[in-house]
């Protein structure tokens, strides 16, 4: 289903962040040197922007994401935030899917949300401490494991490849 449907950049300026921020303060700070709130704030802004996309948003036949998919992504990333994990970069895809990506600390993690619980995870670790994974991950169990490892590297401050 993902074939040619790679995520595309919206390229538009972010709209003002206007919804409640209570959840942004509901997770432990983990002693980071820079606030993770900025990353989460950007992620929610981005999701809001994606939620408002019309059909044909890419100038061609790009499908607007389904409302249930957007809400599901919102709830999944709220869960990641509550677990103190780093914020993803979010992008829409022309087939209506939403991509969440993390490219840091030697990890390349992509989580593709096609619909609620229809999730594919692509995980690569340049250090090969986490096995490569590319398959369905409906409850995000594999993605969470990799993100925990990523967060661990972030905390220990090991050199980044």
């Amino acid at each position: 289903m993902h074939g040619n449907a790679r995520p595309l950049s919206l390229g538009d300026p972010m709209e003002p962040f206007s919804h409640g921020t209570a959840t942004l303060h509901a997770f432990p700070m983990l002693g980071r040197t820079e606030s993770p709130l900025d990353g989460w704030r950007a992620a929610y802004e981005r999701l809001q922007q994606i939620a408002n996309l019309p059909d044909g948003w890419d100038g061609e036949n790009g499908a607007a994401p389904e409302g249930h998919t957007v809400i599901f992504v919102a709830q999944e990333i709220a869960s990641l935030q509550a677990d103190g994990l780093p914020a993803p970069t979010l992008n829409p895809s022309a087939d209506g899917a939403i991509y969440a990506e993390w490219h840091m600390h030697g990890f390349d993690i992509e989580v593709i949300f096609d619909a609620p619980y229809e999730i594919t995870a692509l995980i690569e670790d340049a250090r090969e401490e986490i096995s490569r994974f590319e398959d369905r991950d409906p409850m995000m169990e594999e993605a969470r494991k990799a993100l925990l490892a990523l967060a661990g590297r972030e905390q220990t401050g090991r050199p980044v490849r």
Binding site: F72, Q75, E141
Partner: peptide, 9 residues
């Protein structure tokens, strides 16, 4: 939707 992180949201 119910999600299954370590900390229930």
């Amino acid at each position: 939707f119910e999600t299954f992180g370590t900390v229930p949201v």
